[in-house]
Amino acid sequence: MAKHLQELKKLMDVMIHSQNDDHFHALGIEAVSIEQDRMTMKVEYKESLVGNPDTGVIHGGVITSLLDTTCGFAAATALGHLGLTPTIDLRIDYMRPAEPHKTIYAVAEVYRNTKTVIFTKGIAHQGDPEKPIAHAIGNFVNMGAETFEGFRQVILEKYDELESGHE
């Protein structure tokens, strides 16, 4: 795995494990895989995420957050350095409701990377990408490496702190 992808994985670990009151914890978002220009994440089914108690269907906002996060991290893989990619625009097309009691996966990929904008597309599904719950198109800010001077060191130090606390 390329160095910037290894460091991005560490950033994700810091974001997922360092704050117990953020959306990663509230929703249970987890990274599944990370590759150049591609990211897969998931959310396990839990009652607290249900939008309609009569049907047990997960709230659409959970799927939107999962797709935004997955597309954003896919965009970050395209930077070539450790950094963040703020969302410019995100469109979600819901195809069908998620089935209760099943994990939701999001897969996103970069399809164009310009000097200022990274373009992504993604889907949410429950095990079969041919039966998507939703499609996403997301545009993210492509920020230069100079924007993140010092950021890398802070993240790597925080990651080391988290790792030493897990031993």
Rank of each mutant, 00 (worst) to 15 (best):
E44S: 15
L156I: 13
M143L: 15
H25Q: 15
R152P: 12
E167D: 10
D22L: 13
G122I: 03
K121L: 03
T114I: 11
R152Q: 14
I137T: 04
A136N: 08
G56N: 13
E163D: 08
H135V: 00
V110D: 01
K131L: 12
E35S: 06
N113E: 10
G60L: 10
G127S: 13
R112S: 06
H81A: 07
L67M: 14
A136V: 00
E167I: 02
G80C: 07
I155R: 12
D128R: 07
D21G: 07
M143H: 03
T114A: 09
G122T: 05
N142D: 01
G127C: 14
M12Q: 10
N113P: 02
M41N: 06
D37I: 07
A108E: 08
E130D: 13
D54L: 15
K42E: 15
L5Q: 05
V107N: 04
H166K: 15
G72Y: 07
G60C: 08
A2T: 06
T69P: 06
D89C: 09
L90E: 08
K121A: 01
L67R: 07
E157A: 14
E146G: 12
D22F: 14
A78P: 02
E47N: 12
V110A: 03
S48W: 06
V43E: 04
H23F: 15
M15P: 01
V50F: 10
T70F: 09
G150N: 14
M12R: 10
P86M: 04
G61Y: 11
D21L: 11
D128G: 09
T114D: 08
E167C: 02
Y105C: 12
D22W: 12
A108S: 12
I34R: 06
L5A: 03
I123Q: 05
G138I: 03
A145G: 11
R91H: 10
H125G: 08
K115V: 03
A98G: 10
V62Q: 01
V62D: 00
H125V: 05
R91W: 04
M95Y: 00
Y111R: 02
K3D: 15
P129Y: 08
H23G: 00
I63V: 14
G165Y: 01
K131F: 00
I88K: 09
L79K: 03
T147P: 02
L8S: 01
Q6L: 12
P86A: 03
G83Y: 04
D128F: 05
A78E: 01
L5G: 02
V154G: 14
A106Y: 07
L66Q: 06
T103L: 13
G150T: 12
P100G: 08
T87L: 02
K158T: 13
A75E: 09
T40C: 14
T64W: 05
G61W: 11
M95T: 09
